[in-house]
């Protein structure tokens, strides 16, 4: 019979937490637990206090914003190995978008409030968390800027003269 994986095992296998010290992974896993979601369930809800983030183990989630006229607008999509939620780390700790399960989702829920406390007491842990989330935020910001640019434009390959 195979060994049952612990939260720490999942975290140490994830590329997001790659390179983190063993005792930091131990601290992180103390704030984590596995959660299961059905399609349509919200992992994170816009406007609510941001006290958690998720490492997706299985399934797909959408980051969305709801517009009354058109319903949910999908802004990005994430799958296994990816992290959703970073508002927990930065004041005012309020979720700006929804994260909703598109399929059955298994994810590690990490309690941001618990982590913020641990990071305040251990600056090295705080630095490593901040470094990883800053990279994630930077990547999302670059992607968002490109989405805003409309890189597929109206200028087209096949009509090169605009004539």
């Amino acid at each position: 019979m195979g060994k049952i994986k612990t939260i720490k095992d999942y975290l140490s296998e994830s590329s997001f937490f790659e390179g983190m010290k063993d005792d930091h992974l131990e601290l992180l896993s103390g704030c984590g637990g596995i959660q299961h979601f059905k399609p349509g369930d919200f992992l994170i809800k816009e406007g609510e206090e941001a006290n958690s983030f998720y490492l997706i183990l299985r399934g797909e989630i959408a980051v969305e914003s709801y517009a009354p006229a058109s319903g949910p607008i999908m802004l990005s999509r994430s799958g296994p190995g990816e992290v959703t939620g970073y508002s927990w780390l930065f004041p005012p700790h309020r979720n700006q978008f929804d994260s909703r399960a598109l399929t059955k989702v298994d994810a590690i829920h990490l309690d941001g409030k618990c982590l913020r406390g641990k990071a305040d007491n251990d600056y090295e842990l705080g630095y490593h968390l901040m470094k990883r989330f800053a990279q994630l935020v930077l990547q999302r910001m670059h992607n968002t800027h490109r989405q805003m640019l409309n890189v597929y434009g109206t200028e087209q390959q096949v009509d090169t003269s605009g004539q």
Binding site: A62, E64, S70, G71, P72, I73, M74, L75, S76, R77, L102, N143, R146, Q147, N150, V151, Y152
Partner: peptide, 16 residues
């Protein structure tokens, strides 16, 4: 670049 809830593909720029 953006989609409604029925879309099952990826959302984001092609470089992603």
């Amino acid at each position: 670049d953006s989609a409604g809830p029925d879309w099952t593909g990826h959302v984001g720029v092609v470089t992603e």
